[in-house]
Simulated scan of single mutants.
Amino acid sequence: MSYYQNNNFNPNGGFQNMNNQNNMSGFYQPSNQFSFPQGSMSFGNNPSGNQGNDSNGLGVEPDPLPRGILYAFSTKGYPHEPPLLEEIGINFDHIVTKTKLVLIPTFSQNVLSQEILNDSDLSGPLLFFLLFGLFLLMAGKVHFGYIYGVALFGTVSLHNLSKFMNSSQPSTSQSKLQFFNTASILGYCFLPLCFLSAIGIFISLNNTLGYVMGSFFVFWSTWSSSGFLNSLLQLHHARALIAYPLLIFYSVFALMAIFV
């Protein structure tokens, strides 16, 4: 309880209390004075330690989203809500980074971070396979079924082979290779073969020049993918060994682009 001193001065001497009913040794409690129980109000910190659903730490609930058909197509969301593409696992920064690393096949393994290696994004590989089939279609070759069939069979085979190579390395027991990691690496390194199929639209590849260009783009894809897998599996002096099955895998797609 808070008490206030009455400072009304009486000329006859002393101080006079204006409220005789609440007189307590010259002090009184005004009627408009409020007392709050301890813990009834909090500013910033909640004494009970339970913040509930407040988003700003002040005990204030966020405004609810408006309802209705028109607002269903709006871009308004709750504060600190992640974007939709990030929630479904599509990261444009990783897509651009991995594409640049494929386009520069002489990259150092130190450039590859563990976050990039463990990325299992398949949006880029699906786009590259679709472009490869579209360029072949523009050149008069319909091979969509063969493309996705060979890609699926080759990815499963190379993934199992990579797991066997990883299990033979005692120092890499901490790295766990997932199927989608292998599929993502093989799909991103498929990009050079899209250039080969695009060139086949304008000139015939069933000649010496086409064989040379096909060998070049296959070696490009093989070198890039072997670098990714070698860094992911942490293999020592085994890049040539893992590059051999990758060379066979990408050569099948080059044959689709060269021959009718």
Score class of each variant (00 low, 15 high):
residue 1 M to L: 04
residue 5 Q to P: 05
residue 10 N to A: 13
residue 12 N to V: 00
residue 13 G to K: 02
residue 14 G to Q: 04
residue 14 G to T: 03
residue 19 N to I: 10
residue 20 N to E: 10
residue 21 Q to C: 11
residue 22 N to M: 05
residue 22 N to F: 08
residue 23 N to K: 11
residue 24 M to F: 12
residue 25 S to A: 07
residue 26 G to T: 11
residue 27 F to V: 02
residue 31 S to E: 11
residue 35 S to T: 12
residue 38 Q to T: 13
residue 40 S to V: 12
residue 47 P to E: 00
residue 52 G to P: 09
residue 53 N to E: 10
residue 56 N to Y: 03
residue 57 G to K: 04
residue 58 L to G: 00
residue 58 L to C: 00
residue 59 G to D: 02
residue 70 L to Q: 11
residue 71 Y to P: 10
residue 72 A to S: 12
residue 74 S to E: 03
residue 77 G to Q: 09
residue 80 H to Y: 10
residue 80 H to F: 08
residue 82 P to W: 01
residue 85 L to W: 05
residue 92 F to Y: 04
residue 97 T to Q: 06
residue 98 K to L: 08
residue 99 T to E: 01
residue 101 L to T: 06
residue 103 L to H: 01
residue 109 Q to C: 01
residue 114 Q to M: 14
residue 115 E to I: 13
residue 116 I to S: 03
residue 120 S to D: 11
residue 126 L to E: 04
residue 128 F to Q: 05
residue 130 L to I: 12
residue 133 G to R: 03
residue 133 G to P: 02
residue 134 L to H: 01
residue 135 F to D: 09
residue 136 L to S: 04
residue 139 A to T: 01
residue 140 G to L: 10
residue 145 G to T: 12
residue 146 Y to V: 02
residue 149 G to Q: 08
residue 156 V to N: 03
residue 157 S to M: 15
residue 165 M to H: 14
residue 166 N to L: 14
residue 166 N to H: 06
residue 170 P to W: 02
residue 171 S to E: 07
residue 175 S to R: 15
residue 177 L to Y: 00
residue 180 F to H: 14
residue 181 N to H: 07
residue 181 N to S: 10
residue 183 A to L: 05
residue 183 A to M: 05
residue 184 S to G: 14
residue 185 I to Q: 00
residue 186 L to P: 01
residue 195 F to M: 11
residue 202 F to Y: 08
residue 204 S to E: 15
residue 206 N to A: 13
residue 207 N to Q: 03
residue 209 L to K: 07
residue 215 S to R: 07
residue 217 F to E: 01
residue 223 W to S: 09
residue 223 W to Q: 06
residue 224 S to A: 12
residue 224 S to I: 04
residue 229 L to I: 02
residue 230 N to I: 00
residue 232 L to I: 06
residue 237 H to G: 03
residue 241 L to T: 12
residue 244 Y to F: 09
residue 246 L to S: 05
residue 248 I to F: 13
residue 250 Y to R: 13
residue 253 F to Y: 13
residue 255 L to M: 15
residue 256 M to V: 09
residue 257 A to E: 00
